[in-house]
């Protein structure tokens, strides 16, 4: 790691002020993406502003017809939350697929969403559930928030405080792990809420998380895995690496989508 200054603000306002006034400062939440990147000297923040002291960012609550999760809630918090498990079990199940137990004890939903790693899991849930990302300044719907690999609508000095997930009727997440890293090689989050159908795909697309509109149209007719029989995504614009070329990824998108729908229907 390169040297950096470390700050541990005690309020969100203080954190935002520090972020605003310190050039090249970065927020650290759980640090489970940022620190490995810094260890490889691929990131060189001048300062880290640690949100670890902001307990107000950790809560998980049901608010009307949504589950609102504080940005500093860890993956383990989400996985174990009775609120989440009752209202959106698919989200708790998704949290359990992230990393490993020790990673889940530190990694946070806010960090994952802010980083928008094209192989992370939460972006699929956000887009799949039609979540709203709440920052210290505004509310941003998922469609507008995720803007391509590692790119989000966050402005400089803007900090995610909460993510609000509207409660679906049915939802599920199916993930095919990268055999080495355990990140999502392909992850598909499906959701049905009234007539609204969403199929959000992570890991596969070269621009990060996206909605698979053909599958949504097919499922709108009938929300059943059979509706997706024989369907696979287009291999154009798919990621390709040693673990999965674009053709295999496109195929897996279809398989994972069917499995997700099957799980959602069975719930």
């Amino acid at each position: 790691m390169y040297a950096f200054d470390y700050h541990r603000p005690t309020s969100l306002r203080q954190a935002a002020a520090m972020l605003q006034k310190t050039e090249d400062a970065m927020i650290v939440a759980g640090g489970h993406t940022l620190l490995p990147t810094m260890k490889q000297r691929l990131a060189q923040p001048s300062a880290l502003i640690d949100l670890g002291g902001l307990s107000e960012l950790r809560g998980i609550e049901k608010k009307g017809r949504a589950v609102v999760i504080g940005a500093m809630a860890t993956h383990a918090d989400v996985a174990a939350s009775d609120v989440v498990r009752e209202a959106i079990p698919a989200l708790a199940e998704l949290a359990v697929t992230i990393g490993d137990p020790a990673v889940r004890h530190r990694g946070t939903i806010g960090g994952s969403v802010a980083n928008n790693d094209p192989a992370a899991d939460y972006p699929a849930a956000c887009l799949g559930l039609g979540a709203t990302i709440i920052t210290n300044r505004r509310k941003i719907v998922a469609e507008e928030f995720f803007q391509g690999m590692f790119d989000t609508a966050l402005d400089e000095g803007e900090i995610i405080t909460k993510v609000s997930f509207p409660i679906p009727a049915k939802a599920a997440y199916a993930k095919f792990r990268n055999p080495a890293s355990r990140y999502a090689l392909v992850g598909v989050f499906v959701m049905k809420r009234g007539s609204e159908i969403r199929v959000a795909v992570i890991g596969a697309g070269s621009s990060g998380v996206y909605r698979w509109s053909e599958a949504e149209a097919a499922l709108a007719k009938r929300f059943s895995p059979k509706s997706l029989d024989g369907m696979s995504a287009s291999a154009d614009d798919m990621n390709s690496d040693i673990h999965a070329d674009s053709e295999y990824r496109a195929h897996l998108v279809g398989v994972m989508a069917r499995r997700a729908v099957q799980a959602a229907v069975a719930r």
Binding site: H32, L35, P36, L48, A102, H105
Partner: peptide, 22 residues
């Protein structure tokens, strides 16, 4: 890369990778 777990300790009673924590 936070994969191997040789560094796991408990922080406030929970397993954590000490190589990925300042």
């Amino acid at each position: 890369t936070s994969q191997c777990g040789a560094c796991v300790v408990h922080v406030d009673g929970k397993a954590v990778k000490a190589c990925t924590t300042l």
